[in-house]
Amino acid sequence: MNNVLEVHDIQTFIGQYHILEGVSLEVPRGSITVLLGRNGAGKTTTLKSIIGLTPPKTGAVLFNGAEIQGKPTFRITGQGIGYVPEHRAVFRDLTVEENLRIAERKKGDLALRGDFIFNLFPDLKRLIKLPGGHLSGGQQQMLAVARALVPENTLLLIDEPSEGLAPVIIEQMIEAIRQLSAYTTVLLVEQNFIMASQLADRYTIIESGRSVKSGQMADLVKDGDTIRRYLGAT
């Protein structure tokens, strides 16, 4: 099994709206794969469909070779998928420590990986007793990523980690994601093409609910046509 995650032609409806009309992608083990596309193309819905928050109506999602579509979300993520949603979704009323502890799947997860996490995000150690709602945007983003690292996850889904962050923080974030990708596989949604091109090995482009192009990131950087056509003038 070379691919941690394979998505085969999923179609997702939200209410009566047909949001995904056929998305396929694969995420090779150990890679950073990025989902590119314009606003509203369906990138976030793809992530949510993978973990069953918006379950796909047809198509298949394979995680480590086993079908997971149609299962309840907590079963899917319980198998080892970490999810970092957009807008961070840090629990505001919980302290930083509780935000991390709630993600434990086995007792002692946090103790086991705490050092690694606090190495990656030294700020969090200092803020450990503070409620999540009192953190700055950048700190909340770090906490959200850290939370996904607490249990043993073989795949991380990270949605727009650079959104609304200052350039200095984005640099930190890129560095952190690069470091943690040594341990797990990452599927990233990112609007910021520069960040995406620095990080990713592979890409998949989504355009109005369909996956239209996949390949190596190194090829895409050279392919000005495709970038202009699907991602706007960057």
């Binding site: 907590f74 993520t77 979704a89 993600a103 249990p151």
Partner: peptide, 8 residues
Amino acid sequence: EMVQALGI
């Protein structure tokens, strides 16, 4: 929703 996404 997020709690569920954490595997709970």
